[in-house]
Computed example of a mutant assay.
Amino acid sequence: MPKVTTARQKAQKQSKEDASSATNRAFGPIFNKDLGQHILKNPLVAQGIVDKANLRTTDTVLEIGPGTGNLTVRILAAAKKVVAVEMDPRLAAELQKRVQGTPDQRRLEIMIGDFMKAELPYFDVCISNTPYQISSVLVFKLLEHRPMFRSAVLMFQREFALRLIARPGDELYCRLSVNVQLYAKVEHVMKVGKNNFRPPPQVESSVVRLEPRNPPPPVDFKEWDGLMRILFVRKNKTLSSSFKTQSVLDMLEKNYKTFCSTHDMMIDDTFDIKEKINAVLESVDMGGTRAAKCDLDDFLKLLVAFNEASIHFC
């Protein structure tokens, strides 16, 4: 005997299908893993991030990757204005709908496009649930921004966050650590488990706070980073060993001769780049030290000594 479906059962089935369809539209296709879209769904974590930003009622906040607005609405409750940069037009439309018809609508500006290519407006604080594939370039774009902002509260993959805050002697202490810490104070704010996101990422996350050093140190970053590249290739080797590879010697000799030529300086016939480098290391008593154990002051002292000897890294 064929199964008889009542009108009520049909209505219930249709209701379930409609609900499922709505859910898929809202939470399925909207998220693009290729863009690193993992929406923070835990309201307690979202509020905790906003609280750690110490927002003022006069603040303009830059939010990177607002998604569906779970952080945005909390930021709007504490700040004067939010400028949200969203790459995905679908998510931007969802965010626009969320505030439409509310007092927050006038205080939210949505920029659709790639954050890395965007001309950033003035902002006091930055808050971001960062797409992990742009973590490093995002940090440096923020640190280069002028006028300087007060602070940034940023979500990163756990290991990347731990590299940002690593100190001399830590296993994760690296070139990234010293390059960021040269320009900002960095602290770990909270751990965030993968189940706090939809869809869950494959890694655990952490939130860090960056406070730019104001004024920034008077250092040529290309010079600084050129030195760090050499020293952190093998951070546990002595500094004198780091300068013994032929490619490094050739590069520094070329830079030295170029500098002398452009500054009308004579080069002695007995010039030897190895001897000059060793003399610099001896002058600061750092030949036997290791990059893994050096702090910012050590690196700055070394860079100044090299530059005073007309040895440059870019």
Rank of each mutant, 00 (worst) to 15 (best):
I230E: 00
T57H: 11
Q47A: 05
Q181L: 11
V125Q: 03
L239T: 11
D34R: 14
S242M: 03
T262F: 08
P168T: 11
L303N: 02
A11L: 14
A279L: 14
R107F: 13
L281R: 01
A26I: 10
D88Y: 05
P43Q: 11
A118C: 13
P216N: 11
L91T: 07
A161L: 02
T72N: 04
E275Q: 13
Q202G: 04
Y256A: 11
F221W: 02
Y122E: 14
K222N: 10
D298W: 06
M155V: 14
K301A: 13
D225W: 04
Y173T: 01
E187L: 08
Q12K: 14
K276H: 15
K301Y: 08
F149A: 03
H312S: 13
A7P: 05
R56M: 07
S310W: 12
L182N: 09
P212C: 08
F243T: 04
L300Y: 10
T238F: 12
Q12A: 14
L120K: 11
V207K: 00
I277K: 08
L71Q: 02
Q9K: 15
R158G: 11
T58H: 10
E282Y: 04
K235F: 02
P199L: 05
T23Y: 15
F197I: 06
F259C: 02
V83Q: 12
A84F: 02
I267G: 04
L44D: 03
V248A: 09
L108Y: 09
M266C: 12
K222I: 02
T245H: 05
P215V: 14
P29K: 15
M190D: 04
V219W: 09
S241F: 06
L182H: 05
R198T: 14
A166G: 02
D59F: 00
G48P: 01
V82M: 13
F313V: 09
T68P: 09
G288A: 13
F123L: 01
A152Q: 04
L231E: 01
D264P: 06
F313A: 08
H145G: 06
G28I: 02
A152S: 09
W224Y: 15
T60E: 08
G288S: 12
V284T: 09
L76K: 00
V50G: 03
A291K: 07
T245Y: 10
A84D: 07
E86H: 11
I75N: 01
L231D: 00
H188P: 01
D250N: 15
M286Y: 02
A292H: 10
S135G: 14
V45R: 04
A26G: 00
E144L: 13
L95I: 12
E119H: 15
T23W: 15
K81T: 03
P218E: 04
A118L: 09
V125A: 02
V219E: 04
V137D: 13
S128C: 14
L95C: 05
G36H: 10
H188A: 03
T5G: 01
L95H: 02
P131T: 12
I112P: 04
V304E: 15
Q9P: 07
L154K: 07
E282K: 05
R74Q: 03
D124Q: 08
N24H: 11
D297H: 14
N32C: 05
F27G: 06
G65P: 10
